[in-house]
Amino acid sequence: MSTSYFYKTQASGPVAIVTEYYSRKDAFLAALETLGEHFGGKVAPMRDITSNYAGGVKLSAGQEHDVHWRRPDDYGYRALRVSAKPLKGSSKEERTAARAEHQRLVDLWNKHCPASLSNHEYWHRLEVNTGNILLCGGVMFAHNGTAFFELGFQINEADHAEKVAAGKPTSGWIDGAVEITSSEYQGGWSSKRDEKKVVND
């Protein structure tokens, strides 16, 4: 975000929403670890502009994986193929076995792969315009009963109410939000990061 605006709120609604998002994200990441255990390699946590989702599995570049997995990317992660790709010259029995094994892998993936986690669902619940999030960006976190936000656009309670009354598009409004300085926002983030480090240590 080229220009950032910083806000915080201690209103129970927004704090609960942001806290829930990160609780679900922790559960999502834990599920990725479990998924990786089933396939013998770490699963890449992927993210696009609207959600978090499971990426490929960190497997070796050995040809023994090529039947079921695509070639590794630059980081060594492989995506499961849509269907098995038996080696050239495989017998009919080997091809049948490869297809059966591939179906087992697909079923295992579908059983343990967590659903993608939409961050836009939570921005929407916060009543922030997700179109603005797509265009300008936004970050949120909660710490010690306060939710903090860094947005690439301004939100204003009076402007929001006026536009809603007139039926016009609005950037949205977060209940109880007050604008803060960048240093206060960074202070909240640093405090959260340091507390998490102590817990993990």
Rank of each mutant, 00 (worst) to 15 (best):
residue 49 I to D: 15
residue 96 T to S: 08
residue 183 S to V: 09
residue 95 R to L: 02
residue 64 E to K: 08
residue 100 A to P: 04
residue 125 R to G: 11
residue 166 A to E: 13
residue 90 S to I: 03
residue 171 S to Y: 14
residue 166 A to S: 07
residue 31 A to F: 14
residue 29 L to E: 14
residue 79 A to F: 13
residue 199 V to M: 11
residue 71 R to T: 12
residue 112 H to W: 09
residue 180 I to M: 11
residue 172 G to N: 04
residue 63 Q to P: 03
residue 155 I to Y: 01
residue 79 A to N: 09
residue 7 Y to P: 01
residue 187 G to T: 10
residue 18 V to E: 04
residue 13 G to Y: 08
residue 13 G to W: 04
residue 59 L to H: 09
residue 98 A to V: 10
residue 192 K to M: 12
residue 100 A to K: 13
residue 31 A to T: 07
residue 199 V to F: 10
residue 92 K to S: 09
residue 71 R to H: 11
residue 81 R to G: 00
residue 118 S to K: 05
residue 87 L to P: 07
residue 95 R to V: 03
residue 113 C to P: 00
residue 160 H to Y: 15
residue 125 R to Y: 15
residue 54 A to P: 10
residue 127 E to T: 08
residue 76 G to M: 04
residue 135 L to K: 10
residue 124 H to F: 06
residue 116 S to L: 03
residue 112 H to D: 06
residue 44 A to H: 14
residue 113 C to S: 13
residue 38 H to V: 15
residue 153 F to R: 06
residue 85 K to G: 03
residue 139 V to Q: 13
residue 1 M to L: 11
residue 90 S to N: 09
residue 195 E to R: 12
residue 102 H to K: 03
residue 189 W to A: 14
residue 110 N to Q: 13
residue 152 G to L: 05
residue 140 M to H: 12
residue 125 R to S: 12
